[in-house]
Amino acid sequence: MLLISCPNCGSRDETEFHYGGQAHVPYPEDPAALDDRQWAEFLFYRDNTKGAFAERWLHSTGCRQWFNLLRDTVTYEIQAVYPMGAARPDRAAAAPESGTASTAPDSTTTGTAAPDISGTSTAPATSAGTTAPEGASK
C-alpha cells in the first residue's frame, strides 16, 4: 500500500486515490495537423520508465483534485509531490526543457495553474504551461 501525500489533504492510503498515468502529456495543439503516427503516439504511446517516473494521481475520495507525483517505479519510493502544470522537480533546476515552447496546459488542467500549495515539492513551480511535453508528439 502506497502512502501518498496529497498536497491538499496530507498523507492518505493509496486506496483513496486513482492513478492517471504519465504526467506532462498535453493535448495536441493542432490535432488535425497530426498524421496517423503522431496521433497514435498521443493516444497509445506513453513512457514506461524503469526508475523515476512523473505521473498523475487523483485524490478521488478526498479533495478530488489532480496532482503529480515523481515516483520510482522499481522501489516505489515517492520522491516528490507537485501541482498540475508545474515542471518536473528533478528537471526544473536545469535549464528549461528543450524542445517546444508549448503553451498547452496538461490535458487534465483547465488551463490555469494550480496554486503551488505543496510544501513537499522539491522545487518551486514555475509558471504553468511552459512545461515541454514529455515524450509526446514526437
Partner: peptide, 8 residues
Amino acid sequence: VDSYNGYG
C-alpha cells in the same frame, strides 16, 4: 493488476 506502473 495494481493500478500504477511498476517494475518491482
